[in-house]
């Protein structure tokens, strides 16, 4: 009913403030997931490197995901 066209809907990504929170959430997810996997591997194999490697990999993957979702498109 309103004449002004809202942003957000219709295929565009949500506007900046929530984008920032989502990006942070993605980053956290990456650290948690791959850090967790690394930590599990370390526990299993009785080593110490995988946690650090997992955290780094998770961070990189998250950044790439954020790039894909919010910078590229």
């Amino acid at each position: 009913m309103e004449p002004d066209q809202p942003r957000g809907g219709g295929g565009q990504p949500p506007p900046p403030p929530s984008e920032a929170w989502t990006a942070l959430s993605h980053l956290l997810s990456g650290f948690l997931l791959f850090g967790g996997i690394g930590w599990g591997l370390d526990k299993l194999l009785d080593m110490r490197v995988f946690t650090v490697v997992g955290l780094l990999a998770g961070g990189v993957a998250s950044l790439y995901l954020i790039y894909l979702r919010y910078v590229k498109s």
Binding site: T22, L28, S29, G30, L32, L33, G58, A61, S62, L65
Partner: peptide, 12 residues
């Protein structure tokens, strides 16, 4: 990437 996004959007 899909697990990360799943964790982020659905769980976290």
């Amino acid at each position: 990437l899909t697990p990360i996004e799943f964790i982020s959007n659905i769980l976290l």
